[in-house]
Simulated assay, not measured.
Amino acid sequence: MSDKLIHINDEQFEAEVIKSDKPVLVDFWAPWCGPCRMVGSYLEDLAEELPNVKFVKVDIDENSANAAKYGVMSIPNLVLFKNGEIINRQVGALPKNELKALIENSLN
């Protein structure tokens, strides 16, 4: 697993996401979710390919507060933050190239 893909809990969310000095893609996921595991492997690759973006994973079973705060009803749920604000969201799995395009287009 990439060391650029960080697993965080609810207590770390503000420091790692809201106060981050670079854009953050948050992957709200759960271990029992097949599409989440597929997307997770794509995010490991993208964390290497897009060094200007921080990638974090939040297990919604163990950390439900921020999932509830940000309206996560279905997973995988990818939320892109910039300067502490949501700039894009993707619910459901996408192919890796489409995820990369979504991130890049959101930041340009």
Rank of each mutant, 00 (worst) to 15 (best):
Gln12Thr: 01
Pro51Asp: 14
Gln12Asp: 12
Val56Asn: 04
Ser41Met: 06
Gly71His: 04
Lys96Tyr: 05
Glu85Arg: 10
Trp29Leu: 01
Val26Asp: 01
Glu85Asp: 13
Leu50Ser: 08
Leu102Cys: 05
Ala67Met: 00
Ala93Asp: 01
Phe81Arg: 05
Gly84Arg: 10
Pro51Ala: 10
Leu43Glu: 08
Asn66Thr: 15
Ile60Gln: 10
Leu94Glu: 01
Tyr42His: 15
Val72Glu: 06
Leu107Thr: 01
Ile87Met: 03
Asn63Met: 06
Pro95Asn: 09
Glu104Gly: 04
Ser74Asn: 12
Ile103Leu: 08
Asp27His: 14
Asp59Gln: 04
Asn63Ile: 07
Pro23Val: 12
Leu107Asn: 01
Lys96Phe: 10
Glu85Gly: 08
Val53Ser: 00
Glu104Ser: 12
Asn77Val: 04
Val24Leu: 10
Leu99Lys: 04
Asn88Gln: 03
Lys57Glu: 01
Asn63Trp: 08
Arg89Cys: 03
Asn88Glu: 05
Asn77Met: 02
Trp32Gly: 02
Gln12His: 09
Val56Ala: 05
Pro51Phe: 13
Leu50Gly: 09
Ala101Glu: 15
Ile86Val: 15
Leu94Gln: 07
Val58Gly: 08
Asn63Ala: 09
Ser20Ile: 02
Ser64His: 12
Asn83Asp: 15
Gln12Trp: 02
Asp61Arg: 07
Tyr70Leu: 13
Ser20Asp: 10
Ser64Pro: 12
Lys22Arg: 13
Tyr42Asn: 06
Asp61Val: 13
Asp59Lys: 01
Leu46Trp: 10
Val53Ala: 00
Val91Asp: 00
Glu98His: 08
Asn66His: 13
Lys57Asn: 02
Ala47Ser: 15
Val58His: 07
Gly34Phe: 03
Phe55Trp: 10
Val17Met: 03
Cys33Tyr: 06
Ala47Cys: 07
Val24Ala: 11
Pro31Gly: 11
Pro95Ala: 10
Leu50Asn: 08
Ile18Lys: 13
Ala68Leu: 14
Ile75Val: 05
Ser41Phe: 00
Leu99Pro: 07
Gln12Phe: 00
Lys100Phe: 11
Glu104Cys: 04
Pro31Asp: 13
Ser74Phe: 12
Leu94Lys: 09
Val79Pro: 06
Pro35Arg: 02
Ala30Lys: 03
Ser106Asp: 06
Ala15Thr: 11
Val91Phe: 01
Pro51His: 14
Leu46Ile: 11
Asn108Gln: 14
Pro51Glu: 14
Ile75Met: 04
Asn97His: 15
Ser20Asn: 11
Val56Arg: 04
Leu50Phe: 03
Phe13Asp: 02
Gly34Pro: 04
Val72Arg: 08
Pro51Ile: 13
Leu102Gly: 12
